[in-house]
Computed example of a mutant assay.
Amino acid sequence: MKRKLRRARVRLVRSAGQPEQIAGGMALGLFVAMLPLLGLQLPLVVLIAELLRRLAHIHVSRVAALAGVWLTNPLTAAPLYGLCYVVGRPLAHYLLPASVRSTNAESAALELSTLSFSGPDALEVVLGLVLGSLMLGVPTAWLGYRITYGMVSRQRAQREQRRARRTRAPGLVAGT
Rank of each mutant, 00 (worst) to 15 (best):
A169E: 12
S107T: 07
L30M: 14
R14G: 12
L75C: 13
G29S: 07
Q158T: 08
R6G: 11
D121T: 08
R9M: 14
V86A: 04
T114Y: 10
D121H: 10
L110Q: 02
A23I: 08
G175P: 07
L91K: 07
R11W: 07
L66C: 13
P120A: 03
S118W: 04
Y149R: 14
G171L: 04
G68S: 06
R89I: 02
P97Y: 04
H57L: 05
P90F: 00
G68K: 03
P74G: 08
F31C: 03
V173C: 07
G25V: 15
R162P: 01
L83A: 14
L55I: 07
R101P: 04
E111G: 04
L47T: 08
V63D: 12
Q18W: 05
L80R: 09
V125F: 11
A122I: 09
G150A: 15
A64C: 10
A49R: 01
W70S: 07
V45W: 00
L96Y: 00
W142V: 15
A109N: 14
S15W: 06
Q41L: 11
V60P: 00
L52H: 05
A169L: 11
T167P: 01
R6M: 14
V100M: 13
A16Y: 15
G144W: 00
L51A: 14
L95Y: 02
L38I: 14
L35R: 01
M135W: 12
I22G: 00
S15L: 10
P43H: 08
R9D: 05
R156G: 11
L38M: 07
Q18S: 11
L42N: 07
L52Q: 05
W142D: 04
T103P: 06
R165I: 09
G39W: 00
H93A: 13
V130P: 02
G175V: 11
A23V: 11
G82S: 11
F117P: 02
G29P: 03
S118V: 14
V46S: 10
A8D: 03
A164L: 12
K4D: 09
P19L: 02
V45F: 01
S153H: 09
L83W: 10
L28V: 13
V87P: 02
L112F: 04
N73L: 13
Q158W: 05
L172G: 05
L35N: 00
E50C: 10
G137R: 06
Q21P: 03
P97M: 02
P19W: 01
A174V: 15
